[in-house]
């Protein structure tokens, strides 16, 4: 077989595809993680017995173990234990969503706790239900508080997606691997791949900063 060792214009499409897969999985797992993580935080807000300590323990376990091991457990372990088929993409979605959820849970909990008890108590005295308090008093303020740490988390989680290349998902890093093996030009390949991740991370950080400014607009100093 002939080896195409030099770069071709088709490689741009490959890189774009890889970036697309990384971004799609990042977006999907962020949304699922947000949903699960905030649900966990709400369970804690209602002080549901049994469930709350269980969630805290599970979140700590996910936060304090390597994502790569979590990925292996889902991709290799689950099929062996439960006799079910797990594709690389499914394993990636399950693992990354769970991992993101654990970190979002922690941010959401501290965001809810950042709101003074007196506010919640006075809202309750006004006759608002616990849900109304959460919806109209806690949520808007907690969101403004959480955007900063959330942006930092998302920049980090984008980088974590690179690990799914190890179980065979053809994301940006996997494309890097393929190009690296074919062209044998590691410096160029990994600089381009790293550059793409860097630019994406910067865009996420920029978006987060803009959103934070908007959410905090009502408390911003408007001048005298």
């Amino acid at each position: 077989m002939m080896r195409y060792t030099s770069f071709t214009s088709y490689d741009f499409i490959l890189l774009a595809q890889g970036l697309g897969v990384s971004l799609a999985l990042f977006a999907v797992t962020t949304l699922i993680g947000l949903l699960i993580g905030t649900t966990w935080a709400i369970v804690r807000f209602y002080r549901v017995p049994v469930l709350t300590p269980l969630i805290t323990f599970f979140a700590e376990l996910l936060k304090n173990s390597p994502v790569l091991v979590q990925l292996f457990l889902v991709f290799f372990g689950l099929p062996a234990l439960a006799k079910i088929n797990v594709t690389p993409v499914e394993a990636a979605v399950i693992t990354l969503s769970g991992n993101t959820a654990a970190f979002i849970y922690v941010i959401a909990v501290s965001a809810i706790e950042s709101i003074g008890r007196d506010q919640i108590e006075s809202a309750r005295v006004f006759g608002l239900t616990r849900w109304q308090v959460l919806r109209h008093v806690v949520a808007p303020q907690a969101m403004a508080f959480a955007v900063g740490p959330l942006t930092g988390l998302l920049v980090n989680q984008l980088q974590v997606t690179s690990l799914i290349s190890v179980i065979g998902v053809v994301d940006l890093t996997k494309i890097g691997n393929i190009l690296n093996l074919r062209t044998l030009k590691p410096f160029i390949v990994w600089t381009i791949v790293g550059g793409l991740y860097y630019v994406t991370a910067k865009l996420i950080a920029l978006g987060g900063a803009r959103l934070e400014k908007r959410l905090r607009a009502h408390t911003a100093w408007k001048g005298l």
């Binding site: 920049v155 980088q159 974590v160 997606t161 690179s162 690990l163 290349s165 190890v166 890093t173 890097g176 691997n177 690296n180 590691p186 410096f187 990994w190 600089t191 791949v193 790293g194 991740y197 860097y198 991370a201 910067k202």
Partner: peptide
């Protein structure tokens, strides 16, 4: 801080 560790690692390992 903004480039995945695995990419940095491959950069050094293969580079």
């Amino acid at each position: 801080r903004n480039i995945p560790f695995i990419v940095q690692l491959f950069f050094f390992f293969y580079g």
